[in-house]
Computed example of a mutant assay.
Amino acid sequence: MIFPLDGSVRHPITIDPTVWIFDDRKRKIEELDAVAENDQEAYYAKMGKAWDDGLTQGTRVDHNKPMSRQDKDAALRDSFAMPLAPFINNAEPVDLATHIRFYGETVLTIPLHDASRVYLQFSKDGKVLTDGPVYVLYDNQIIRQVNHITVLSGQ
């Protein structure tokens, strides 16, 4: 269930939403309105703190960090989405990039500067989406069956 993020970017990437359940950036669908504005700032604050701690205390990588019982229970019953902005940032849109297009059951094109308001839903009620790989959640719109994201130039 992987899909590409390509187009007017320096680094086309392949996205695998099946691993997002372990990602700290995921959000419960019910909480999206409350966290949408501060999501990127919270992520950068967390990464900044981790960087500072690494400099002052040294680093210790724990790749086998187990999920807590509470996290496991939530993963088996809740619906989650991932913010799109970090993936767009990693792909590094070129200077002329202006829009993002999502291909799914319908095609949605939005301005690139709205990427921070887009979430990719990857689970519903603790299960992988049957008509996925992801849904795009943007301004009270849901685009199902999204399987390709393209960054466009000069729209």
Rank of each mutant, 00 (worst) to 15 (best):
D73V: 08
M47S: 05
N147V: 02
T98N: 02
R27I: 10
V35Y: 11
D95C: 03
G104T: 13
A42D: 13
A75S: 15
R101P: 08
Q121R: 15
L84R: 06
F87I: 10
Y44G: 01
A45S: 10
I110Q: 02
K124H: 12
D24G: 10
S116V: 08
V136Y: 08
D39H: 05
T109G: 01
I110R: 01
V118K: 08
R144Q: 12
D52R: 14
L137T: 03
E105R: 06
K28V: 08
F122Y: 10
D39P: 02
V35G: 09
V134K: 06
H63P: 05
Y103M: 13
R69K: 14
L55I: 13
Y119P: 00
S116P: 04
G104W: 08
S68E: 10
T98G: 00
R144W: 00
I110M: 01
N38H: 14
E41G: 05
G54T: 13
S123V: 09
N147Q: 15
V61R: 14
V118E: 01
Q121I: 04
H63C: 07
N89R: 12
Y119H: 13
F87E: 11
N90K: 14
D33T: 04
D125Y: 02
K46I: 04
I143M: 03
Q70C: 04
R69A: 12
D24T: 10
S123T: 14
A36M: 14
L32S: 05
N64W: 12
D39I: 02
S68R: 10
A42Y: 05
T109A: 03
D23P: 08
R27V: 15
F87M: 12
R144E: 12
Q40G: 14
E31W: 04
Y138L: 07
I29P: 06
Y138K: 03
Q57S: 15
N140R: 14
D78K: 09
